[in-house]
């Protein structure tokens, strides 16, 4: 119990310090207040034009599609992560050593930092954009089930972190993992469903998404938000979908732990 209490205290402190640190740059986060609605507006007009007289496309109706894009934008603000860049920088500059000597696991430290950083994102990106979507675009942004949506977004938060942290760990071999990061971002941008719902992809590509991490980052939580999940011909209840997402997060965590252990054997430092 004491150990849990101590971890909670560390988590709160690291998150709080990160929040204060990034608060100095809060206007950077506020760029999203312009960028998010502009992207959303473009998506709104693209899909309104594309739907034309079609009542539904890929099994999705226009209002659901608009809600979907609103949800993916907002979920992106809550789960955004750059743990890979951060870890890569620490490895490249040798500063990782200073973390290695601390009585706290760096992965936990990075996760707590992310909690603080995204708390700021919640205030300066998520809330303003949510209000813009509701009051200016008139989009119904009420989730089909609030508890399931919160749980799914939390899992997406963890998934994004563990995937990015694993990419960051490759720096122990590659030193500079920028190329891998760019490649992942490129593929993730498409297969996470942030650009277009995965229902539009060929059947075999939809099926493959069950075994890849991408859909768990945006598509699945956004569909949980809309209250209807189907992929590759499988219709799942919201509970089943979130269950699969939880399993995917556990598998990713296991993989991350394996890579971390291998990476630590690779680590050498000369007194940063």
């Amino acid at each position: 119990m004491n150990s849990f209490k101590q971890k909670w205290l560390i988590c709160r402190t690291v998150a709080d310090v990160t929040y204060k640190e990034w608060s100095a740059y809060r206007t950077h986060s506020m760029v999203s207040i312009i960028v998010g609605p502009v992207y959303f507006m473009v998506q709104y007009f693209i899909w309104t034009a594309v739907y034309g007289d079609h009542p539904s496309l890929g099994g999705i109706e226009l209002p659901q599609m608009i809600r979907y894009f609103g949800a993916t934008a907002l979920i992106g603000y809550l789960t955004m992560d750059f743990a890979d860049w951060n870890l890569s920088m620490l490895v490249r500059t040798g500063k990782f050593l200073t973390f290695h000597l601390r009585p706290i696991h760096h992965r936990s430290f990075a996760l707590f930092q992310k909690i603080g950083h995204r708390s700021l994102g919640f205030l300066f990106e998520f809330l303003p954009c949510l209000l813009i979507f509701i009051f200016i675009f008139g989009v119904d942004m009420r989730p089909a089930s609030l508890p399931w949506t919160i749980l799914s977004v939390l899992l997406a938060f963890l998934m994004n972190f563990y995937v990015n942290y694993t990419i960051g760990l490759t720096s122990f071999w590659l030193v500079q993992s920028g190329g891998l990061r760019s490649a992942f971002m490129l593929v993730s941008g498409i297969f996470s469903g942030a650009l277009i719902p995965l229902d539009f992809f060929p059947h075999w590509l939809q099926m493959s998404q069950f075994f890849l991490p991408f859909q768990y980052l945006a598509y699945l939580p956004a569909m949980v938000f809309t209250g209807h999940y189907s992929l590759g011909g499988f219709e799942l209840s919201i509970g089943q979908a979130v269950g699969i997402q939880a399993i995917a997060v556990l598998v990713t965590f296991g993989f991350n732990e394996l890579v971390r252990r291998l990476a630590m054997k690779q680590f050498t430092a000369v007194g940063a």
């Binding site: 693209i46 034009a49 594309v50 739907y51 034309g52 079609h54 496309l57 890929g58 490649a183 490129l186 498409i190 650009l195 277009i196 539009f200 992809f201």
Partner: peptide, 20 residues
């Protein structure tokens, strides 16, 4: 690769039987 994938959204929209 990014360039090849950029028009993917357009391709998928037309593949779904609809258009601009």
């Amino acid at each position: 690769a990014g360039n090849i994938l950029f028009p993917l959204v357009t391709l998928l929209i037309y593949r779904a039987g609809t258009s601009f």
